[in-house]
Simulated scan of single mutants.
Amino acid sequence: MDTVTTAPSLPDSGSAIPASSPVRPARPLLEISRIYAEPAAAASERGRQILARWPDAEVVEVPSHWQIPELHGDERNVRRWVRIKTEALVLGTKKTLTVRPNGRSADFIAPSHANGCAMACVYCYVPRRKGFSNPVTTFTNIEQISAAIAKHSTKQGMKLEPNQCDPDLWIYDVGENSDCSVDAMISDNVRDLVELFRSLPGAKGSFATKYVNRELLEWDPQGKMRVRVSLMPAETAKLVDVRTSPMAERLALLDDLVEAGYEAHVNFSPVIIEDGWIEKWTELLRQLDAATSPATKAQLACEVIFLTHNRALHEVNTGWHPKAEEVLWRPDLQEGKVSQNGQSNVRYRWEDKLQYVRQFLDLVEHYAPWCRVRYAF
């Protein structure tokens, strides 16, 4: 295997990331040097295609994408969090092909074509499932995944009554546990899904993203894929949206998505209560107004999601990025909440959050009145 040049390690556990660190050239998001693969996944057509993209990578056979001790559940990986995301890839087979109801961002959650992410947003809930770094796992049985979506869509038929997800089509979220813009750099799974929804008369796909991958603009979705670009104030994003595309690039993507045939929405997510948060979001809304054409504004809608954090993730983050936890972990503003899966989360105290939501919606109404709010919580 060829030697892979690596960037210096992140600070050890408990040490902050210096604000005045010298600027280094940005490291590529993916420099895959080791691929952990279930045998069936590696032998599949999609698996072989992926392995061919990184012919010099070491291939490690694993019995299950859930059972890789050196990646998942080892707290010593905290100090290698980003390096693992950069260099490791997992190939697996998606066993559960269930389409689940949602009703908020989408009507349904499609079976995942991937989970995990090469980015490292400090508040992300996905690492809680497998533990610690959680690099991308790509599921190679995309034909079965697509067939399950198509079968469900056919059974649903046409949407007869509009709802907040969409007035005309059933919306299927295809990126619940990953970022499809990054997944598209690894395999053709996302492109296959774009082509699938193009052929389904009653359905539209949807995914949220924080990464600008302009390859997507070449795929001719014909209005059957909604891309929800996540936005937050640039200053905050530099602290908590680690390894994502800069906010200016995300804003510039919106018009291009619409021109390429996508439906473009935005996620104001997460809204983090910090000093000057009103002023920061005001500036972002002004930037959004300046960045978007009349055609984009005419079809744009948004979701507003206030921060929910997790105690276990807070403890992990303290080991590699404690500066971010100064704005995410705010016991003076937050209260405990036990999630549906029993995890210990925190959110802003509900009485205060009601006020925060009203303040935020007033900002949208004043600075972006053309932006329809699909929901806010």
Rank of each mutant, 00 (worst) to 15 (best):
E45W: 04
V227A: 05
D332I: 06
V212P: 00
F197R: 04
G261T: 00
E326G: 11
L91R: 02
E195T: 09
R129E: 15
D183T: 14
S339V: 01
V99K: 01
K95R: 15
L30F: 13
R79H: 04
R286F: 09
L363T: 08
E259S: 11
H321D: 06
L217Y: 08
W54K: 09
P246V: 10
G73R: 06
C121N: 12
G342T: 08
E176N: 13
D173I: 03
A150R: 10
R228W: 02
S230E: 07
I32G: 02
P101A: 10
G223H: 04
T209L: 07
P294V: 00
A43D: 13
E143L: 14
R228H: 04
V271I: 09
T3D: 15
W320P: 00
G175A: 06
K353H: 12
F139W: 01
G116H: 08
K159R: 14
E351V: 07
A312Q: 11
V78R: 11
V266T: 15
R250I: 01
F207Q: 00
L288K: 06
N115Q: 15
N310G: 11
Q156V: 01
E218V: 06
V60N: 09
L193W: 05
D192F: 03
K224C: 06
K280F: 02
R372I: 07
C180A: 15
E315S: 13
T137C: 10
L288Y: 08
V126T: 05
D56M: 12
A26R: 15
E176Y: 14
D173P: 03
L29Q: 09
L284E: 14
L97I: 00
V136E: 05
V227Y: 00
L231F: 01
M225G: 12
G47T: 01
V240L: 00
T5H: 11
P127S: 03
R250K: 13
A260T: 09
R53E: 06
L363A: 09
